[in-house]
Design a protein around this nucleic acid. Sequence first.
DNA 1: GATGGCCTAATTAGGACTTCCGGTGT
DNA 2: CACACCGGAAGTCCTAATTAGGCCAT
Length: 441
Amino acid sequence: MLQQSELIFDFASDHVNMSQLMGYSDYPAVIVEQVPLPHQLLYAGLACEQIQTEQDHQQLLKVEPCESGEEETMETLVAADSLLNMDCPDSLSLEQHYSQTFLPSLGDVITTPVTQVTVSAEGIVGAFDQPQWHSLHTGKPASRLQSRKRGKKARHRRAESPTPDITVKKDKYNKGGNTLYLWQFLMELLQDRQVCPRYIKWTNANAGIFKLVNSKAVARLWGKHKNKPDMNYETMGRALRYYYQRGILNKVEGQRLVYQFTSLPKDMIYITDGEGTKEEEDDENDDISGHDDGVSDNSDDSTIPSSDQSVEEEDSHPPQKKMLTSSVKAPATQRSRPSHRPSAQRDTVLRPTNASLIQEQHLPIVSAEMLRTFQNLQKVQSLQPRGHASVFQTAQLLGSLCEQQAAAEGSVEGQDETSQPGQKTLQVETPQLVTLTSSDQ
DNA sequence: GATGGCCTAATTAGGACTTCCGGTGT
DNA sequence: CACACCGGAAGTCCTAATTAGGCCAT
């Protein structure tokens, strides 16, 4: 029986000639100590399993469009419940989705699935020598992040909420739990086309500025996540205001419901409604047109995400080896579209309703199982096959990923000349990951 | 009986909100 | 008037770290 404290793999000892590895000492290494079983399942096999059962999950996740002639009649609470799939224990609810798959995306993809991972990035050009977070406001004093101290005796502090100017902090996410911080939750919403741009959307992705289009719905979703049925925007807003002190959020002066992340992960997926900086006018138009997105904050009226139709369209296509290239777009400020365009045809992004975030954006996620897979592909080699920690050479892997990423970005830029440097508009890892994990069976 | 190692439950400290409130601005 | 917004204060919830105590082997 495998004990938690044991290393879950020792495969390398049979395959690696240690003398071969001496020359790699300058390459980055990933130290993997242990992986909880759920993570093993998640990263090693679940991706494939998800594909196999995608139809089922999609059915569970779908929010059926309103078939009546009246649009936008669903109430916010109903929509929120549907979004969270609280009544579908077998489905991949957003909650699970967030807690298990989103967190790695927040700029620190390496640390999450593995209990303890150390990354050394020297020597990798363009890989991890840059912080995973790019600060949007470098002027923020770091001291503000630790503003609250109590007069208690000194002791080891537990991991704090990761703040955007932190690059790698060991075990800062979900250490043994499924805590999802509010700012993480909002970021995830901004990457989820079922709620973005309907309930929350970027108004200036470059600057990290977003708007709570339907503040009540967002608050409701947050309340669902926190199991706080009484959650409202007032309460959530207080939590957001605390982020000012901690340098995580700024308020955009003069604009209601508009906030700004001080930093963003580099691997954010930017979902836009194609309306760019015109969002303010569009919001007003939405209210007037009656074909709005439930944007009236004063109303509990909420709607089924308009992207559902596009989801269904995507669902009709097999996800195999599917690249997201065509669906991921540049930041809102770069694009425009006819205002009368049906929402279902919005060329916004994105993430298939059920698609694993891991597949789309979370490489390199390093779990033992994945490393084993990689090693099978001769991408990774163990340095310490008999130790309690195994050190893997990931230079080849990361280099390969960087090359592919760069190539993909280049191709995207060629396709969409509005793409901005520094903003990822494409995740090329999807088929790669699927392939890799599949080969591990 | 003394000692040491291991395990587990209880306690403590602290982070991240949550709740409530009074107030201001639009 | 409704709502967004602000920030203080106190509280709750959760988790990690620490401590205490029991059990067992030597």
